[in-house]
Design a protein around this nucleic acid. Structure first.
Length: 536
DNA sequence: GCCAGAGTGATGGGGAGTGT
DNA sequence: ACACTCCCCATCACTCTGGC
């Protein structure tokens, strides 16, 4: 155990093993709703005899559901479907026993709408080598490599001298992340890379022994360092897409820099503390490993799962399309857009569509969470969608009247805030401004806009002219700096309570059951950066 | 031990999408 | 309009299995 470095050295030139990370890339953006979509389709198949025929049928269903391209299967023994299965297995949603497939508890939770984003985060934070996947015949990651890739990179992202990573820099992790002791080596390489203002074309210069370090058992051109490096960059790109899909990190607006998501600090820090706690893996006991890996909240889930209702082929397509829809659109009461798409484009009967989706609607918000977080940090590119989604969230999920005023043009000087909230029963309204920023500090220009434009102007909108102004609210992806004291100053100067809330908190509040509108309204007046616990 | 057929999933590339 | 990024997938090199 003390000789990890030595053992690695001994196998360094063993061409039987891969020396770098690998992830299945059937799909790279593994958004929770997308994984749920694939699991949903798979769940309609007969899983007790996973033959090539069933695999081809699975491929056809993926095509029918617009989940993959419209290509016909040319090779009768196509590995396409197997790559999807391998991917679901590698993140612990599925395990295999001889010719049968089974969902793990994590996999079941995903289809059952139980906190899908948390499930994915948990699975990635527990992703480890060695594993069933890393020991797989075509992967063959060196069994001495012992690391949790996602936790390792998140820890680097927290490092004071690193702070962000690009795909090029993540390639160093892919190639040299053999155990947690490799951190210093990688930090050194990243800093050297930055110091030289290097680009992708310089990357190979930072690989010590390209042909050995980049070697994989299946590479067809084992002596072509450039090709091998492209492959490692591809793995880094896949890794980045996995990580971003889980919302644990995000791409900084306008750059290619990957940055840690502050709002998930608690789960991330907990995983960093446990970075050296591995799930035991013994080659040959693959089912045992994956079931342990996939039992994400085992303590809670002791009930025997009742057999899920099998949907027919049409219903499975409607259902899986609906997962995609609710992953990308915050739906109101009726999902009319979706219904008309399914009737017009797919030719389904309206009643059938309603039958399938009606039970899914109440919990649909849990799938929109990752999209909302993405919008909340996207800068100018997503600012408008973030305004609209926030207004919709207030209206349909918090029961508070909200009007999107961000695009109303004001004659003369100044403008209006993004959203006006109103509460008839109290005779009050409120000004809300959204900021699609990951680190919003309420800068002085915004402060001035509030004082000199939004507050004096809002009554001209005629939406709430007879209402008194109850409070001012900022909604942003992330909040930081001196925002707390600035809110207090704003309150003192304007006379109106001023609060701020981040996107994650707002969407969590929207998921709390039985919150009364007036209760939320009062909490929004508390003059501070709000937390979910403030609303209970 | 040898062979043939079945199983496997990484590899490399076509091409859609995106930014400028 | 052009360059670049990166998504998704079918192929195919390799391994395994079982019959003799």
């Amino acid at each position: 155990m003390h000789s990890i470095q030595l053992t690695l050295h001994a196998s360094e030139s063993n061409p039987k093993f891969r020396r770098s990370w690998m992830f299945p890339r059937a799909i790279r953006k593994i958004y929770p709703w997308k994984l749920a979509q694939i699991c949903q389709i798979l769940n309609q198949m007969a899983l007790n005899n996973w033959s090539q025929d069933i695999q081809n049928e699975f491929s056809r269903l993926l095509t029918a559901g617009n989940l993959k391209g419209q290509n016909d299967i040319r090779d009768p023994k196509s590995g396409g479907a197997r790559t999807y299965i391998s991917q679901l297995e590698s993140i612990g949603l599925l395990y295999r026993n001889k010719k049968e497939l089974f969902f793990t508890l994590a996999g079941k939770s995903l289809i059952d709408f139980e906190t899908p984003l948390k499930v994915l985060q948990h699975q990635l934070l527990n992703y480890q080598y060695p594993s069933t996947y890393s020991n797989g015949r075509n992967v063959r990651i060196d069994p001495d490599i012992r690391i949790k890739p996602f936790v390792f990179v998140l820890k680097l992202l927290k490092h004071a001298s690193i702070k962000y990573l690009t795909v090029d820099e993540i390639t160093f992790c892919v190639v040299y992340g053999h155990n947690s002791g490799c951190e210093d080596l990688i930090i050194g390489k990243v800093l050297d890379f930055r110091k030289g203002n290097s680009s992708r074309s310089d990357l190979l210069n930072f690989i010590d022994n390209p042909l050995e370090d980049l070697s994989t058992p299946k590479a067809t051109q084992k002596d072509n360092a450039k090709k091998l490096l492209v492959e490692a960059i591809n793995v880094a790109n896949t890794f980045k897409n996995y990580l971003i899909s889980s919302s644990l990190a995000y791409e900084e607006a306008g750059t290619k820099n990957i940055i840690i998501s502050e709002e998930f600090t608690d789960v991330i820090d907990d995983s960093i503390l446990n970075i050296n706690n591995f799930i035991p893996y013994t080659p040959g006991f693959d089912e045992k490993f994956t079931r342990a890996y996939g039992s994400w909240n085992k303590k809670k889930d002791t009930t025997t799962n009742s057999e899920r209702k099998k949907l027919n082929k049409g219903e499975a397509i409607i259902s899986s399309q609906f997962f995609e829809y609710i992953g990308n659109v915050l739906i109101t009461e009726s999902a009319e857009d979706f219904i008309s798409k399914m009737t017009k484009d797919f030719g389904f009967n309206r009643d059938l569509v309603l039958d399938v989706i009606t039970p899914l609607i109440p919990k649909s918000l849990t799938f929109f969470e990752s999209k909302y977080l993405e919008l909340s940090k996207g800068g100018v590119a997503t600012a408008r969608d973030f305004e609209l989604a926030t207004a919709e969230l207030f209206r349909t999920r918090l029961g508070i009247d909200a009007t999107h005023t961000g695009s109303i043009h004001k004659k003369g000087v100044g403008g209006y805030s993004d959203i006006i909230l109103s509460n008839e029963s109290l005779g009050e309204c409120a000004i809300a401004d959204t900021k699609a920023s990951s680190y919003y500090t309420l800068p002085s220009t915004d402060y001035a806009k509030m004082i000199s434009n939004y507050i004096p102007n809002y009554k001209q909108l005629g939406l709430a002219s007879d209402h008194t102004l109850g409070f001012i609210l900022y909604v942003a992806g992330g909040l930081g700096g001196e925002i707390q004291s600035k809110l207090l100053t704003l309150y003192k100067e304007s006379g109106f309570p001023a609060s701020a809330i981040n996107a994650k908190t707002l969407i969590e509040v929207a998921q709390i059951r039985d919150l009364k509108k007036d209760h939320i309204w009062e909490k929004l007046k508390t003059n501070k950066v709000l937390k979910t616990s403030d609303f209970h």
